[in-house]
Design a protein around this nucleic acid. Structure first.
Lengths: 252, 252
DNA sequence: CGGCGGCTTGAAGGACGTCAAGATTAGTGG
DNA sequence: CCACTAATCTTGACGTCCTTCAAGCCGCCG
């Protein structure tokens, strides 16, 4: 049974190509503040727009890049969700993270100069591709670009550390939901109702839990009136309590 | 009983001040390749040396910076070991990492613009302090500096993800030892014999284990002939087998 | 409709944590 | 140099949270 009415789309789904809609995307993108004119040198800004390439659509399961490929570009998600994951030689997957619209993918590839993970579309995905060498060159001329790159990289270190801690299933699940909500909110989506673009198994993997445990925790949360779940649609009913549960993880 | 003879010091302990010994340290430092002349613009290089400040000594337990302080500088470890950790409101510590000579501390503070963790000396520590604003400015003139910063930041994302995975106590302990060995080796120390500068409890915390479990795993490794442990002195007898044990973590 | 993958639910087992006690070391001051 | 205490480490017994295994359910798509 479905307890929640269908979730209305808050963001544009199909950006089309060459539709002159850049501003709508860029305003929520990690690079928006430097992409969109803000007192920067005009010609440099021109360069920034020139080195951006719109790519997509990718469909669920499509690979954006694969482990070991030569690192060339970083990506900003325009629409859809991307998961990054590694596969060890036993064939077990480890999901590093999920990337929502406005977030960057590929920053961890700069150092090894090869992508250290796979990037896979979880639904219909559109991206902005930035040639990294070109971006780095531009950054030497535009301090704003350099600053933003430093910030994005630094932020990713913190993100990676978030779920690395020692916490039980309830705390990790609560933190996952709250983080998702906050990230949706930051991009102008609803913070209380959203659709999970990833499978339970993917959530479980990312949180170092068994899929069964994820199911059980979600059910427990629902029984306690904290959330309402209908398949992949989630509504946060007591975001405050969830945040309280997750406070050890969220910060620290 | 002591099974291992005392470990001879491989690295200089007391760097003194203004001893003209920079090269000895810088050659093993994360910034060495840009600090030490390598075809770079002479005046820019001069600037790099100018914005470096040698600080220390810090003693065991001393704080280098604290959570919430305004971010000003990043640090390179010249001698000793630094641990970075957060404390949640329940008062529980979470150790983010250990920083050996030649490694950077504070890169995760760029984004929030405040240090998101404490940095604490585990023994006698000497550091190079880099004013980050000055470094960033310099980076716009010296692409090599910018590249190195990007690489260091990117590498830290990968490091943070390493121990975030779902692995059992044996794998994590083996990975910890091998990673330590490799890092010592990269800086010119012995890869098979070294002294743990951190307490068992700190290792345990970092690996999300109980201190008791760390003891038990180390004993098991010793009984299997993989290592020899005498207090904090460790000798890797079967580094290959340890690496094999840790391969799922080390990579993936 | 029927098969298949994703999800849920229950019962049993295991890896690690917790608790408690003892051993060893380090630190301190006489 | 030697007590004395506190801190760290080790070891064993027991408990618990989560995984594993197994089965059934549901929605999706050919």
């Amino acid at each position: 049974m479905s307890n929640i009415k269908p979730i209305e789309r808050v963001a544009p789904i199909d950006p089309g190509e060459g539709d002159g809609d850049e501003v709508r995307f860029c305003s929520t993108c990690a690079f928006g503040e430097v992409c969109i004119p803000g007192g920067f040198d005009k010609t440099a800004l021109q360069d920034l727009h020139c080195l951006v390439e719109h790519v997509g659509p990718f469909h669920s399961g499509d690979r954006i890049f694969s482990t070991g490929e030569k690192f060339e570009s970083i990506y900003a998600v325009r629409a859809g969700t991307v998961k990054t994951s590694t596969v060890d030689e036993e064939g077990r997957e480890q999901i590093l993270g999920f990337h929502l619209p406005g977030e960057m993918v590929g920053l961890n590839a700069i150092h090894p100069a090869r992508y250290p993970c796979d990037a896979i579309a979880l639904d219909t995905v559109y991206l902005c591709r930035f040639s990294f060498p070109a971006l780095a060159t531009l950054a030497t001329r535009m301090p704003g670009v350099q600053q933003q790159l430093f910030r994005l990289l630094s932020a990713d270190i913190g993100k990676a550390a978030l779920l690395a801690g020692d916490h039980n299933a309830n705390e990790r699940m609560a933190a996952f939901l709250i983080l998702l909500a906050d990230r949706f909110a930051a991009r102008g989506f609803s913070a209380t109702r959203f659709r999970l673009s990833m499978a339970r198994g993917d959530i479980a993997n990312h949180l170092r839990l068994a899929p069964e445990t994820v199911s059980r925790v979600l059910r427990r949360f629902q029984d306690q009136g904290l959330i309402r779940v209908d398949e992949r649609d989630v509504e946060l009913l007591q975001a405050g309590q969830l945040r309280q549960l997750a406070r050890c993880i969220l910060h620290a």
